[in-house]
C-alpha cells in the first residue's frame, strides 16, 4: 500500500520548471529519501504534499485522500519540518511547542506530557525555556522536529533536516529518525547529502530537473550499476577529443560497461568493471595505445554513481550548475502566501 502517490506533477516559477512530470509512490511505513541537487524540485514537491503549494497540474494522494481537495484531512496526518526553520524568536522553545499543540487541538494534559517526552528524547532540557532567538541552527532544527512530531503524525516530512548542522544535532536527529522508522510512521525526507539518504532510507528516488530519474532501494540501485566504479584520468587536464578516444578504446574491453565522460572533472572517464582482472587488461590496453594513466581510482558504487550514471554528472557538479541558474528571490516570492 502506498501512503503517498504523486502523479504527473508540474509546477513552474515563471520560466523555471520546478517540477516536470514528477511521479512518486511512497510505501506506508517506509523512510523514503528524495535525493537530488538543490534546485532539482525536492522542496517544491514536499510543499505540494504539505498543501502549502498547488501544482500547475497533476494529482497528489496522501493516505488515500486527494491532498489538493481534502486539505484538512491531509494536514491532520502530517508533520512538516521545513528547510528554512520558521520559529518565533520571541517565544521560548516550550511556548512554541505549546502553541503548536493548540494549533493541532491537543488537550492540555496530553500536550504537556507529549512535550516533556519530546524534550527528553531530543535532548532539549537545558535550553528549551530560553527564547528561540538565541538558539543555534541545530537547536532550532531539533525544536522544529519536535513540533513536527508533537501530534504524532502518520507522515513526517523533512526537507533537508540536517543541512548545516553540528555533529551532535545530526546524531540526535538521525537517531530519532531510525527509531521512528521502526514504528509505523511514514517518513519522507529530502536531502542532497548522499550518506544521509544512503544511511537512513529504505527506498529512494533520485530527482533531477523536476522528475524522478531513478528509484528503488539504495542497494538495488547500486547493484543495478553492475560492478565497481572506476574513475580514470589519462592526464591531469584532458580534453574532449582525448577523452573520446579513450572512451572508444575502453568501452570495447571485456568487463567494462557504462563508460561516461565527466566534462566537469577535467574530462575524466567513469565506468564500471566486473572484476579486478579487468583493471589489469585496461592498463595494458592503454599502454598499448600510448595513453598514460595520471590517476585511477576504484571503489564500490555509491548513490553518487547512480546519479552520475543517469545524468552524466556528479551530484556536486549538478549543484554548482544549478546554483548559478536559480532565482531564489523569485522562487521565494512565488512560494510566499
Amino acid at each position: 500500500m502506498f501512503f503517498i502517490q504523486l502523479k504527473n506533477l508540474y509546477k513552474s516559477y515563471g520560466s523555471i520548471k520546478a517540477l516536470n512530470g514528477l511521479n512518486l509512490k511512497v510505501p506506508k511505513g517506509a523512510l523514503y529519501g528524495l535525493l537530488g541537487p538543490n534546485g532539482a524540485g525536492k522542496s517544491t514537491a514536499l510543499r505540494i504534499i504539505c498543501t502549502l503549494l498547488d501544482p500547475d497540474s497533476g494529482d497528489v494522494e496522501v493516505a488515500g485522500h486527494n491532498a489538493l481537495i481534502e486539505e484538512k484531512e491531509t494536514r491532520r496526518r502530517l508533520g512538516y519540518v521545513a528547510q528554512e526553520v520558521a520559529i518565533d524568536k520571541i517565544l521560548t522553545g516550550r511556548e512554541l511547542l505549546l502553541l503548536q499543540g493548540d494549533l493541532y487541538h491537543l488537550n492540555k494534559n496530553y500536550k504537556k506530557a507529549r512535550i516533556e517526552e519530546l524534550i527528553e528524547r531530543l535532548e532539549m532540557n537545558e535550553w528549551i525555556d530560553r527564547r528561540c532567538g538565541s538558539f543555534s541552527g541545530g537547536m532550532k532544527r531539533r525544536l522544529d522536529l519536535a513540533s513536527g512530531l508533537l501530534h504524532e503524525p502518520e507522515l513526517l516530512i523533512l526537507d533537508e533536516p540536517t543541512v548545516g548542522l553540528d555533529i551532535e544535532s545530526r546524531a540526535v536527529i538521525w537517531g530519532l529518525l531510525k527509531e521512528l522508522k521502526n514504528n509505523e510512521t511514514t517518513i519522507l525526507l529530502s536531502s542532497h547529502y548522499l550518506e544521509e539518504v544512503d544511511e537512513l532510507s529504505d527506498e529512494i528516488a533520485i530527482i533531477d530537473k523536476g522528475k524522478v530519474i531513478a528509484s528503488g532501494k539504495p542497494d538495488d540501485l547500486k547493484k543495478k550499476l553492475g560492478g565497481d566504479r572506476v574513475t580514470l584520468r589519462v592526464r591531469e587536464f584532458s580534453d574532449e577529443l582525448e577523452a573520446e578516444s579513450v572512451r572508444k578504446l575502453i568501452k570495447n574491453i571485456n568487463g567494462v560497461s557504462n563508460v561516461v565522460v565527466n566534462k566537469k572533472q577535467g574530462y575524466s572517464l567513469n565506468f564500471l568493471v566486473q572484476s579486478n582482472d579487468v583493471i589489469s587488461n585496461l592498463s595494458e590496453c592503454l599502454a598499448k595505445e600510448n595513453f598514460d594513466v595520471f590517476a585511477l581510482s576504484h571503489s564500490r558504487p555509491s548513490l553518487d554513481d547512480v546519479y552520475l550514471q543517469a545524468t552524466g554528472k556528479t551530484l556536486m557538479d549538478a549543484e554548482l550548475e544549478l546554483a548559478g541558474k536559480r532565482d531564489l528571490k523569485l522562487e521565494n516570492k512565488k512560494s510566499m502566501r
Binding site: R121, E152, P153
Partner: peptide, 14 residues
C-alpha cells in the same frame, strides 16, 4: 520512546 500515531486520537480534544 517516541510514540507514533496510535495515540493521537487520545490526545485530541473532543
Amino acid at each position: 520512546m517516541i510514540a507514533t500515531n496510535s495515540s493521537f486520537s487520545q490526545g485530541k480534544q473532543s
